[in-house]
Amino acid sequence: MKQVELDKLDRRILAALQQDGRISNQLLAEQVGLSPAACWRRVRTLEETGVIQGYSARVDPQLMGQGLCVLVNLSLQRHNIDSTAEIEQQVSSYPEVLQCFAVTGTADFVLRVIVPDMASYDRFLNEKIFTLKGISQVNSNFALREIKNTETIPVEGLE
């Protein structure tokens, strides 16, 4: 994937939208020093090129009764394209899995899983993870507290 060239105004727009995705175009234009029409065109281009992938609301998992965060390391028995693709497809379909990374090191995948409680996590393991073909080891790390959780990509200083 080719990197998109961003100028200073594009970076200002991205910084502002990452802070407040619901900001009006008028206010955004004022903040970055553009006319509303020029600002709208730039935002539209950032969306069309895939730099801006979408907009969403951040939801507090604790208030939603999803207070247990688990980082799950999965190791595979064998590494081949078919088994890896099947595991990736299955894991991606589980709503409890918020993120899945193929990684280097002692594990092959790291999942970030959110569930209500330990009993729910036990069910998740038994009904979903342990039924996956080709898994040799599962290691669970329970988050004690959240220190930082952001999706804000640093845009200032990129040249």
Rank of each mutant, 00 (worst) to 15 (best):
L6G: 05
K8L: 13
K8A: 15
I13E: 03
L14V: 06
A15S: 13
Q18M: 15
Q19E: 14
G21S: 08
I23F: 02
N25I: 14
E30I: 13
Q31R: 08
Q31W: 01
Q31Y: 10
V32P: 00
V32D: 00
G33I: 03
L34T: 00
S35C: 00
A37M: 12
A38T: 07
W40G: 14
R41A: 15
R42Q: 07
R42T: 06
R42F: 12
R42M: 07
R44S: 15
T45G: 02
E47D: 10
T49P: 01
G50E: 01
I52C: 05
I52N: 03
Q53A: 14
G54N: 06
G54I: 07
Y55L: 04
S56F: 15
S56W: 09
A57I: 13
P61H: 13
Q62C: 02
Q66Y: 09
V70R: 08
L71G: 07
L71T: 08
V72A: 04
L74N: 08
Q77I: 15
Q77Y: 13
N80P: 05
N80R: 14
I81F: 11
S83P: 06
S83K: 14
V91D: 03
S92Q: 13
P95F: 04
E96M: 05
V97F: 10
V97M: 00
L98S: 06
Q99N: 15
F101Q: 01
F101L: 01
V103L: 08
V103G: 06
T104D: 05
T106G: 02
D108E: 00
F109P: 03
F109S: 01
F109N: 02
V113S: 05
D117G: 09
M118A: 13
M118N: 13
A119V: 07
A119G: 11
S120C: 02
D122W: 11
R123G: 04
R123H: 08
F124V: 04
F124S: 10
L125H: 03
L125R: 08
N126Y: 07
N126H: 14
E127I: 02
E127L: 06
E127P: 00
K128S: 14
